[in-house]
Structure formats: structure tokens, C-alpha cells
């Protein structure tokens, strides 16, 4: 099982992770605003994540951590 977690307080809302996800699972959370004033990245369907880490690889701010259990 893949566990993906976001350090949302560090997210600058650039959206690069959304473009990198091959399964189009990521989105910017328009319901939330973090301390920096950005809509942080979130995953729409965590169960479909394959843990390829493309999002984490392109994230400039090390927001995403991926663990395979």
C-alpha cells in the first residue's frame, strides 16, 4: 500500500505536481488556504496512487513524502 502525505504548510501552490502525476490524481485544494496564503496540493483518490513519486520529484519545496508499506 502506498502512503502519500503532504506537508501543506510548505506548499506554494505552484501546481507542478498536478502536471507531473501520470494518473492525474492530484489537484490544488480550493477549499483550503495554508499559512502562506496558497491553495495547497492534495490527492483526490489516494487508493489509486501507485507511488511513482513523479509529483515529489518535481516539487520544488519537498512537500510530498511517499512511503510504500
Amino acid at each position: 500500500m502506498v502512503k502519500i502525505s503532504f506537508r501543506t504548510d510548505r506548499c506554494k501552490g505552484c501546481g507542478l505536481c498536478v502536471t507531473a502525476c501520470p494518473k492525474k490524481l492530484l489537484a490544488m485544494d480550493s477549499e483550503k488556504i495554508n499559512a502562506q496564503g496558497h491553495h495547497p496540493a492534495t490527492i483526490t483518490d489516494a487508493s489509486a496512487c501507485v507511488g511513482c513519486a513523479s509529483c515529489a520529484l518535481i516539487c520544488p519545496d519537498c512537500v510530498i513524502t511517499i512511503i510504500k508499506e
Partner: peptide, 25 residues
């Protein structure tokens, strides 16, 4: 449990001042 991706140790744990989406990060 295997870590696929996490913040490298050689980066200090502080927010970077770079603009959103900057390649420097």
C-alpha cells in the same frame, strides 16, 4: 515499509524563499 521519497538530510528543514514553481528548489 519502504520510503520511496522524502526530504534529503542534506537540506535544512526551513521553508525556501524562492517563488512558487522556481527551479532552484
Amino acid at each position: 515499509m519502504a520510503v520511496v521519497f522524502e526530504r534529503p538530510h542534506a537540506l535544512t528543514d526551513v521553508p525556501m524563499h524562492y517563488c512558487p514553481g522556481c527551479g532552484h528548489g
